[in-house]
Simulated scan of single mutants.
Amino acid sequence: MSRRVLVVGAGLVGLGLAHGLHIRGAEVTVAERAPELSEVGWAITLSDLHRNALDRLGYPPSLWQREPMGYEYIFDAHTSLPVNTFEFGPTVMLERSLLQMRLLDPVRDLVRTGTAPVSVEDDAPVVGVRFDDGTTGEYDAVIGTDGVHSWIRRNALGGPAPLDIGCAVIRFRVPNRIGVTFAARTTPIQGSRLGYFLNDGGETLHCMLFINDPAGRHHDTPLSTLAERFAGLQGPLGHVVEAMRSEPDRLCVDIKQVTTSVWARGRVAIAGDAAHAMSPALGQGAGAGFEDAAVLSDLLTAPGLPVEHALAGYEQIRRPAVHDLQYRSFNAARELVLDEKP
């Protein structure tokens, strides 16, 4: 008899997990609070490890085939002089919304939108779940992939609220009208750091402004105002500064981190941002979630392995690697903006 698994949250990790379990014979239901699934987000990066995880989850290489990101140059924010360079290796960048739709397509029929759990009772050998639409269900395992504000983490596992680390990131896009062929970022200035990556085959610059923002005071600050911090900047980043003055569409997000002592208890577990949300400074969050999903898909469908052992093993395998990654991502975010005080 195939295992019945409830995945809570239809984000990237939840969809990937659903597919990995489904192709291994599990009976999967995905509960998504949003009334409908829409294309959201900006861009994500995928390393070799992340693409290997997607391969293990059953997705074809065509899903992520892109030109590698190449090189990044670091420019002094005061003088515009290039001062360092960094090679990304085989890392690629994808549009998050496009990836989301491609992950959704093969599991669309497994997703129930407009519904979320309101109670989870782990009464072995099943987990009883009551949903906010009045329906109920019994499952062999419940996995929360419901993001940084995870209901499963807080209510089913008694975990903490996310921690605001005092930084924000503002994302916006700029047409690559100058034909630049490499990524770039500045050194810190006035508690902020500006950079971009190439996207859409080099036609678009995916821009990110990291900013020291402990009180969320810059959510509504016009980009044209923030551009003055980089006045006089020359070269490709000067092109970005000029574009900021025209107020392109932008997304401002406070950077939060989730550190919880319990990832799994009995037949309930969390994965992705629900378990280990981290700064986007290293571009590792979504990819780490795919690695979670690959391990969970393997262990939850391993013949003869009890669910409780599968979930405990998942936590034992994934927690050490993610703990180190979170630590480095946190420090990277702080270093991006705090090398120089605002």
Rank of each mutant, 00 (worst) to 15 (best):
E32W: 09
S97V: 02
N155H: 14
A18D: 12
P342R: 04
L325M: 15
P320T: 04
Q234A: 11
W151S: 02
A321E: 02
R51P: 13
R217P: 08
E27H: 14
P117C: 00
L63A: 03
D122L: 08
G201L: 07
D76P: 14
V241L: 02
E203H: 14
R250F: 00
H22E: 10
G89S: 03
L17N: 03
G25V: 13
E87C: 08
L6I: 13
I44N: 09
H50M: 03
Q326C: 03
A271K: 14
M101S: 14
H218C: 01
A310I: 04
R193T: 03
H219A: 15
R24D: 04
P90S: 02
A18H: 13
D133F: 08
L336H: 02
F75G: 00
I317Y: 07
R24C: 05
D273C: 09
G304S: 11
Y59I: 08
G166I: 00
I143M: 11
A184C: 04
L300Q: 04
A183K: 06
F330P: 05
M93R: 15
C252I: 09
R319S: 06
L57N: 04
I152D: 04
N331G: 11
H239T: 09
D249N: 10
G191R: 13
I170Q: 03
F75V: 00
Q257G: 10
Y196C: 04
H219Q: 14
S279Y: 12
T135K: 12
L94D: 00
R130G: 00
F210L: 03
Q65V: 11
D164E: 02
A227C: 06
Y327S: 15
F330N: 01
V322H: 03
G272V: 10
V129N: 02
E315T: 10
H323S: 14
D324W: 11
F182K: 12
I170G: 00
L282I: 09
N176H: 13
E340I: 08
A18V: 14
G166M: 01
R3V: 06
E87Y: 13
A302H: 14
L157F: 12
G289T: 04
